[in-house]
Design a protein around this nucleic acid. Structure first.
Lengths: 188, 188
DNA sequence: GATAAAACGGAGACTATCTCCACTTCGAAG
DNA sequence: CTTCGAAGTGGAGATAGTCTCCGTTTTATC
C-alpha cells in the first residue's frame, strides 16, 4: 500500500507530531477554523515543515482520517464474518450513525472534504466504499438484498447522513434514513 | 416574504446585473473558481457595490438559487394537487434527479452551501424542505407512506444525492437511491 | 568525525477578501 | 427646472491567510 517510505527519524517525529495535534483539534471541531500556519506552531514545527509533509489542509485531514477509516473497514469485515450479510449491513449502518454521533469532528471533516471534492480522501474513502459495496453484493448473493440497485447507492445515502450532521434533530433523522434504506433494500 | 424593499433605480439595476452574471457563471460551473473581486468587474460594477449587495459569495449564490427553489416548490405543489401523495413524492424525487442531472452547476452550489453551512440558503432551503415534508406527511395520512420515520429523512437522502453529483456513475446511483428510499417508505 | 543528503523553519512574497470614504447619481420637494 | 439630502458607487489600499524560498541544522553513512 505504501510506496517505499524510508523516512528520516526527525521527519517521522515531526510528521507524527502534526498528525497527533490534528487529531486533537478534530475532537473539538476547531480544525477548520484555525489558520494553517498557526497550526504548525501549535504542533511545534515550522510552517515549511508543515507544508512539506501536508501540502494542503485536506491532506492533513486525510492522514488523521486514514486510521479511522481503516478501523471502519475492519469493522465491516468483522461483521461480515460473524453475521449474514443483510444483518451485517444493518449493524454497520446503525453503528456508523452511532459513530458519527460520537465523533462530530470527523463527520464535519468528511462532509467538508467531500464537498470540496479535494480528492484527498480518495484512498481511504474508496477503501470504505469498497468494503460496503462488497457487503451489499454479499447480501445480493445471499438473496436478502434486492439486486436491481447500485450497491454504491448505500454510500450515497450514508454521505447524506454525515454531511448533515449538524441539523437539530440529526440523530432521529439519521436513524430514519437508515431504517428506510434497509427496508428499501429488501428484495420485493 | 420581502421585508420592505424600496430599492433605488440604479441600485436595482446593479443588483440585477450581478445576479444575471452569477447565473451565467453557474452554468459553466466557474462560479466557485472565480475571484470574488474579479466577478464584480465582470458584472460591470465596483467591488464595493458587489459587497454591499452581497456580503458573501454564498449570499449571491443564494440569490440566484432562490428562483430555482421557488420553481421546485411550485412543482411539489403541482404534483401534490394532481396525484396521490405517494405518487407525487415519487414523481418529485425522480424529477429532482433529472433536474440536478441537467443543472450540474446548481448541484455543486447546493452541495457547497450545505457543506459550508453558511446558513445562506436557510430561507430557500427551508421552503423546499417544508414542501417535501408536507408531501411525506400527506402520504402518511393517506396510508401509503410508513409513519414511523422522520419526514425530513427524505431531504437528507436527497442531499446525499446532490452532494455527490460528480461521481462517475452518478445518475445510476442517484436513481438507485431514489428507488431504495421510495421502496423503504412503503408501510410494512 | 567528515561529508552529503535530507529535513527544518520562519521571514516575507503573494493573493484573495473586504473596508472605507470621497465622489456620483437619484428623486422628492419647491 | 433647480436644488439638496439621501442613497448608492467604485476602487485604492488595509488586512489577513497561504505558501515559497533558501540559509541553517540534523541525520545517516562511511
Amino acid at each position: 500500500m505504501n510506496t517505499a517510505k524510508p523516512l528520516r527519524a526527525d521527519a517521522r517525529r515531526n510528521r507524527d507530531a502534526l498528525v497527533a495535534k490534528a487529531r486533537e483539534l478534530f475532537a473539538d471541531g476547531s480544525f477548520f477554523d484555525l489558520r494553517f500556519d498557526d497550526f504548525a506552531r501549535l504542533a511545534g514545527v515550522g510552517t515549511g515543515t508543515l507544508y512539506r509533509h501536508f501540502p494542503t489542509r485536506e491532506a492533513l485531514a486525510e492522514a488523521v482520517y486514514r486510521g479511522e477509516v481503516a478501523a471502519l473497514c475492519d469493522r465491516v469485515r468483522d461483521l461480515r464474518a460473524q453475521l449474514p450479510a443483510a444483518d451485517a449491513l444493518a449493524a454497520f449502518l446503525r453503528g456508523m450513525v452511532e459513530y458519527v454521533d460520537a465523533h462530530r469532528g470527523l463527520a464535519r471533516t468528511l462532509a467538508t472534504l467531500m464537498a470540496t471534492r479535494s480528492g484527498a480522501l480518495a484512498e481511504g474513502g474508496l477503501a470504505l466504499e469498497q468494503a460496503v459495496v462488497e457487503l451489499v453484493r454479499a447480501g445480493v448473493a445471499e438473496g436478502t438484498v434486492r439486486d436491481d440497485v447500485e450497491p454504491s447507492a448505500v454510500m450515497m445515502a450514508l454521505h447524506g447522513i454525515t454531511a448533515a450532521h449538524d441539523r437539530p434533530h440529526w440523530r432521529a433523522e439519521a436513524d430514519s434514513v437508515v431504517t428506510v434504506v434497509l427496508a428499501g433494500l429488501k428484495p420485493r
